[in-house]
Amino acid sequence: MATKRIGPQTVRFDRPPVIIGAAAVAGPEEAQGPLGHEFDQTYPDLTIGLSSFEKAERQMMIDACRLALRRAGITEKPPAVDYFLAGDLLNQLITASFSGLEIGVPMYGLYGACSTFSEALAIGAKLIDGGFADRVLCAVSSHVGSAERQYRYPTEYGSQKKPYAQHTVTGAGAVVLAASGTGPRITYCTTGKVVDYGVADPFNQGAAMAPAAVDTIEAHLRETGRSVEDYDLIVTGDLASFGYEMAVKLAADRNLRLAKNYRDCGVMVYDLSRQNVNAGGSGCASSAIVTCGHLLKEMARGRLRRLLVVATGALFSPTSFQQGENIPTIAHAVAVEA
């Protein structure tokens, strides 16, 4: 009998796992954004002195892990964690797997596109509350150079982007979860279902993902009996400005008032008026660096007590959209409480 399940999509943790350490590292454009001063480490250029974007992304994930482990007081090598859960956007998860080689602990590679951050937190929390692990290291990354070349055009190709297009966030976030310790706790997680609302434009991922976010938020609130106001802040991962607008509209249709305590990490990470990023950020790192770099620190400062992180993922590949398929999307919610 699954006693921790409180609804078709939501589980409640009996002994809520604790976030004992977190870190965010970010690329040059993110460093110049409004949250630039919050990141634990920033890099002056996209390749960070390495020979490819892929190697740079991997180094960023390893750096984020190292910093998060240090925050958690874990200094051994290999680190004293039971599992490493990691994911990224590149084909065959090369960033996560090559980082796993470096970290050197039992690993599961995860793919949920840009929703991987909350996917990793949810699975990590389940491993701990289920009694399968005492400490879990979760990490995700994305990189504008490596993502562009895989999903879109070569970096130096000149084209005009649509105003609702998004800019992949460069960086990585890592979290150390533990069965006990001090720090904010993961109390609930709501697993999203894959939805398809008919958007097929790969440049309009925000609009494609908005219904997934609203579905998951609605399911979370229904199954936990909570309301939007019970949270100090609800953040979606990377809907960016247009997707945010669509999410607010869709939610209003379902009598959910997402207003002043609802924000989107893709909008928060850049200064949209000054930086050339169109509608805002996307990528696994969007939710990860905003949560690890900014929101968890706000919790430590006492400015936030209850946070719902809803990372959103567009589950398409260049092959699927070139063959004319719609973009299926997903969103997972994780409740973090001080």
Binding site: Y197, G198, V199, N204, A207, P211, F242, M246, L250
Partner: peptide
């Protein structure tokens, strides 16, 4: 899907 697609097209900048 068609309702949402219409909603997106209408709002799309």
């Amino acid at each position: 899907q068609s309702l949402y697609r219409r909603m997106v097209l209408k709002a799309e900048p």
